[in-house]
Design a protein around this nucleic acid. Structure first.
Lengths: 340, 340
DNA sequence: GTTAGCACTCTCTATATCCGAGTGCTAACA
DNA sequence: TGTTAGCACTCGGATATAGAGAGTGCTAAC
């Protein structure tokens, strides 16, 4: 259990370190924090805090730096979430008021704005479309045995794919089939589509087993999630001005992380609902540089959900970041209700 | 006019500098190049080459480095284009044999492969769709006054956009309109589409001036090139291992360039047909780091054209890069003929 | 419990020094 | 006349050294 004074000192260390990126000494705290205490006293407390694992010393005779445990305590008990600038909230909301935009695009723009506001990098899971529903499936023949298949969902999302038509299937038959799919499966959640189509096919085509198999394969290909969920990344550039990334090797690592995506996927997928602070992800992400991630998992209306994360140095400005993502969550929540 | 020996020396300087990134001294050339000459003789020649502007000295008592003029001469007169690894050609061709893929995707994959092969960054202009033709225009109503407009071209390209339906237009009327567009304008080049639609509208709706204007505005919006041509970028990461980018500031510049796009657009758009070598683009691109660009402008069949460029340090491996892009051009050319 | 004082530690910066690679020039050589 | 050996000179980069500054822990006094 920490005393009131220890908490105050821990808070001061964290906040000063966040601002300066330099180890914080007892002098500095004595001067800048309101406490009427001498450096010596603060030194004693800091020694205790270190022993308890909240602070670390890069080397003897340097100031202190928060440990992961220290950050954790700070975030969980000492953080006063900043109420977000009204200006910013307005800017965020603006992203949603242009209803023309596709969800993907909205998300991309949000990411871009967030990185601009925080000066950190932003990652977002492309929205999962599991629960969106089919509005229309269409084939547009191109004339040389190929066609474009276009699939429109009720969220306004469009998937399209160039397909080779199975030669066994006359264009007449295909047209009938598609008409039937549209008539009978409109409103079906996209996730269940493949299965439903198979059932439909089985019913219609039981006569001709061989063609059935071909056509089944064909739809299977068509509906296979085209390139698994995308990762949206923005603001890589912002990270480069941080002292943590003064070294090009660090930058290279970071770019690799963003290009590769896999480790980020894992972390984002694993993030619990609401705004969460993940401190010290360097191991999980395979980086040498100390980074933290603040995530929020939000729902777009009742159909879609996505996770947005802000990646910064471990000494990132948690107050601002958490505040911003909370505000964003609220906007998402209230936005889902009226229309979509 | 350069003597045979001077050309040999210039070539040696360029090639050694490309390999080592270090200024090249007379000793090195005497040792490594086949010429049976002493360093002293080579020094004399190098002094002459410097006076003629082909070489530069970073400082007295360093070796020589090629000037832009030197590179130019090398590329224009001394370059033996490497015949490309059969393996690579195969890999490139493979990108085109999956006819399912959309052009955009093909291009993206090609860029990715090129950057992997060269270890430089690759930029490509999203293909210009000016000459592709309309195959089908479709509106899929979503039910709350919005609809998805889907436009399919004969190259298999799909554009889609969420639109708000003009309330003055009944869905009945819209359906008729779209049907008419499809019936009458199928095969129209996309570039001419807006104008054609206006003519059609004018003919059909002359009775109701006010609605006409609304609907015109609506189509205008719809067909406005959605977000000007895209820039495809890949392989930024590769650049980071080059000594030219050991400094983070340089990296930051580079990332900004790729994010911003505008200067790159200008250069790529301005590139003449065929394989071209642009030496020393640092001014044009607003960089401090010395970079060159090798471009090729290729046609996809008769309909589309695009420019692909490889950006590397000015001391990039021109032989390899030019060879690779030549091979790519050939593949594009022969590929355009059969099907599409 | 708090604080002043002090010796000590360690990093960082600036300065001096040295080494090596490379040059230009001169004079000798074929 | 072109080529080469020799040599003094230059300059950047690496290495060593000293000193400043910031911060600590500990002791002893308040």
């Amino acid at each position: 259990m920490l005393t009131e004074r220890q908490r105050a000192i821990l808070q001061a260390v964290v906040e000063l370190y966040i601002r300066s990126a330099e180890p914080v000494g007892s002098r500095t705290i004595a001067r800048l924090s309101g406490m009427r205490l001498s450096p010596a006293t603060i030194r004693n407390e800091m020694a205790d805090l270190e022993e308890m694992g909240y602070l670390e010393q890069p080397h003897t005779s340097a100031g202190r730096v928060p440990s992961h445990k220290g950050y954790r305590y700070y975030v969980d008990h000492l953080l006063l979430t900043e109420s977000v600038n009204a200006e910013w909230v307005k800017a965020l909301k603006a992203r949603f008021h242009q209803r023309y935009a596709e969800i993907d695009e909205t998300l991309r723009q949000t990411a871009s704005l967030l990185s601009e506001l925080t000066h950190y990098a932003v990652v977002a899971l492309g929205p999962e479309v599991f629960t969106t529903r089919l509005v229309k499936l269409e084939f547009v023949p191109l004339g040389d045995g190929r066609a474009v298949a276009v699939l429109v969902t009720d969220s306004g999302h469009v998937e399209h794919k160039l397909v080779e038509l199975p030669p066994q299937l006359s264009s007449e038959e295909l047209r009938n089939l598609v008409e039937m799919v549209n008539a009978e499966l409109k409103g079906t959640p996209v996730a269940a589509l493949t299965q439903k189509i198979f059932q439909l096919l089985a019913r219609v085509m039981e006569s001709n087993r061989e063609v059935y198999l071909r056509v089944q394969r064909f739809f299977e290909d068509l509906l296979a999630p085209s390139g698994e969920t995308k990762l949206i990344v923005d603001g890589t550039r912002e990270m480069l001005s941080l002292p943590e990334f003064r070294d090009v090797d660090r930058v290279r690592e970071l770019l690799r992380l963003f290009e590769e995506g896999e480790p980020l996927f894992r972390v984002l997928r694993g993030a619990a609902d609401g705004v969460r602070v993940h401190i010290g992800l360097e191991q999980d992400l395979g980086l040498d540089s100390p980074v933290s991630l603040v995530t929020t998992t939000v729902a777009f209306g009742s159909d879609l959900r996505t996770t947005i994360g802000i990646i910064g140095p471990t000494r990132m400005d948690y107050a601002k970041t958490v505040g911003l993502l909370s505000a964003l969550s609220d906007i998402f929540d209230t936005w889902g209700e009226p229309g979509r």
